[in-house]
């Protein structure tokens, strides 16, 4: 067990390869749910939770059912079912999280509104699952990667929401209002995160 290795994965997923700002995953909720700080935080944690659980679940599914080297069918290659199998797992997970939040915190449920079912179509979730497989991570590495990628997503979302709350007061030229200025902000933020790529952790 090498702790330094996990440190590299965590810092890499949060800062160097931030899912939103350098990998362009999860842009829709990043622009859509970043108007209010409260809902941004709620959305961030919901996505982090789904990403961690989805990483674990898809890793187990891929290793024991799909991958011909390790599956229980003695070498039948089912890897072509990856996309379909992963999206089904993620869709059911999201449904489950939605039910749990509805029972435990109706306030949060109302605040997240239509964005909860949309976590299914959040590319960050499917993206992290596919990346775990492409990088041939172990189970624990996948879990850590999924969780820290979720934290990176939350970080970007919360930063953006804080900025956009301030932006409401600002006098912006009319055509730039709303989504365009959000993208220009994202560009500046991405430029700042670009600085992290100078870190070499190996």
């Amino acid at each position: 067990m090498d702790l330094g290795h996990f440190f590299v994965i965590i810092i890499g997923a949060i800062f160097i390869n931030n899912f939103v700002l350098t990998k362009f995953l999860g842009i829709c909720p990043y622009i859509g749910v970043s108007r209010k700080l409260d809902s941004a935080i709620g959305m961030g944690f919901a996505v982090t939770f789904v990403m961690s659980v989805a990483s674990a679940a898809t890793w187990v599914l891929y290793t024991f059912l799909l991958n011909p080297k390790t599956n229980i069918f003695h070498g039948t290659d089912l890897t072509y079912l990856r996309t379909i199998a992963f999206i089904i797992i993620i869709a059911s997970l999201v449904q489950f999280v939605e039910m749990v939040i509805q029972k435990t915190s109706p306030v949060l449920y109302n605040a997240l509104g239509i964005y909860l079912p949309l976590i299914t179509t959040n590319c960050a979730v499917l993206g992290v699952a596919v990346l775990n497989i492409d990088e041939s991570f172990s189970f624990l590495e996948s879990l850590v990667h999924g969780f820290s990628a979720g934290i990176g997503f939350t970080l970007a979302l919360v930063l953006m929401a804080g900025l956009r709350e301030k932006l409401d007061m600002a006098d912006i030229p009319k055509p730039l209002r709303g989504i365009p200025i959000a993208f220009i902000l994202a560009s500046l933020m991405s430029l700042a995160f670009f600085g992290f790529s100078g870190l070499s952790l190996n």
């Binding site: 700002l21 350098t22 362009f24 009319k174 055509p175 730039l176 209002r177 989504i179 365009p180 200025i181 959000a182 993208f183 220009i184 994202a186 560009s187 500046l188 991405s190 430029l191 670009f194």
Partner: peptide, 20 residues
């Protein structure tokens, strides 16, 4: 990466302007 956000931001702005 930053250029992608910047370009899309300004293109969206242009289309908003056109619409107005």
């Amino acid at each position: 990466a930053p250029g992608a956000f910047l370009t899309l931001g300004y293109v969206l702005c242009f289309f908003n302007w056109l619409d107005m």
